[in-house]
Design a binder for these strands. Structure first.
Lengths: 198, 198
DNA sequence: TAGTTGTTTGACTGATCAATCAAATTATAA
DNA sequence: TTATAATTTGATTGATCAGTCAAACAACTA
């Protein structure tokens, strides 16, 4: 009975998580507090402690929520395609589209990943997730492998190319100086990646 | 007299900055405090306030210090070469080498960039530096332009390629899962970038 | 109805921290 | 030497915050 999450508990937790995302986007991890999340969610501070074991728990569950959302968005679009090159192109397009349409989510994700550390002070961004953890990386690797096995892609180092493509996608968020909009960047990236892998 | 930074003031500030870098690497931006920096530097807390206007000032000056150090390291090596392709390869090699040999510096840099925000809460990582600010990006763009003008490189969108290469370099730090060491990754990246730009 | 469980409030506690400041110490100059 | 300025200390202050808890409230049960 007690370990089946009640409906009200589930929605309440989601309400708190979405409030946390908004506050993270507005003032960042450094200045976030349970009081500010509570105010945004229009509840009392005690209620957060009732539904979560602590601030760290809120942040961890928010991180998990954000990773899931992004993966669902991109994976769904990728599965629409079957051919490796189409999938790869869709992966790139969908990733950049998500950045554009879910900006607050991406900022909140960055805030957590780059601020949170495990108990022994290892930053989250340096923790090697047990392979399955980084869902997007796994998806991209699978696409590349599929392309090589079907001889559509040339021979190349899959881990290296995966890192390059993931980096190219992440970096777009930070290179604000350039006036390149997401669609244009996606086109260029698809063209350049194509040259790289064939 | 008073606006000429005294020698003792300069070395003291550098002592505080290097202590801050160590503490940032050990426990991160979230848990840093003036008391911890003071303890690491073996001085009193008041002395930090004497040489800096506040905690934010310490972090800003530390960030500036770290950016300068990295740029000096990479630019020096790039200037050893003259041909555009050699310069590009050296840029890639030196960037990845710096990550390997100055890991604490890179972690401290990440901690500041991804945690600090301006007074109006804009995160540092989204602030568009006035072109000259991002020295490394400017250096990379100049190399690519030089290569295109001398017809060594093909025609491509310079801003897009710049972002891709910068992303590929940054991402290496975060894709810990792969066993690829920095030298191997540098080789692969050079090879793949070559395919991309010719 | 009354009892029970689950949910919510908000004041409170103890801890941490940035910044201050009076006093002490050291360096420099006259 | 003495006076003046620069540097350094560390206790203190005021503010913020995470987490607690007694009490109130709501939903459900029998």
């Amino acid at each position: 009975m007690s370990d089946i999450p009640s409906f009200i508990g589930k929605t309440r937790r989601e309400q708190i998580i979405t409030a946390a995302i908004e506050v993270l986007e507005e003032i960042g991890y450094i200045h976030i507090s349970l009081a500010k999340i509570a105010k945004k969610a229009k509840i009392s501070t005690g209620l957060i402690s009732y539904h979560f074991s602590g601030k760290e728990d809120v942040m961890n569950q928010t991180l998990y929520y954000l990773i899931q959302k992004e993966w669902q968005f991109i994976n769904e679009k990728v599965q629409e395609k079957k051919a490796p090159l189409d999938r790869l192109y869709m992966f790139i397009e969908a990733s950049l589209l998500y950045q554009k349409t879910h900006r607050a989510n991406q900022i909140a994700l960055i805030e957590i990943i780059f601020h949170a550390r495990s108990e022994d002070h290892i930053p989250y961004y340096l923790i090697e997730g047990n392979e399955e953890d980084d869902l997007l990386r796994q998806l991209l690797k699978a696409i590349l492998l599929q392309g090589q096995e079907s001889k559509v892609f040339a021979s190349f180092h899959i881990d290296a190319v995966t890192t390059i493509i993931q980096g190219a996608i992440s970096e777009y968020m930070f290179s604000t100086e350039t006036k390149l909009d997401a669609d244009r960047y996606a086109s260029e990236l698809k063209y350049l990646v194509h040259k790289m892998i064939t």
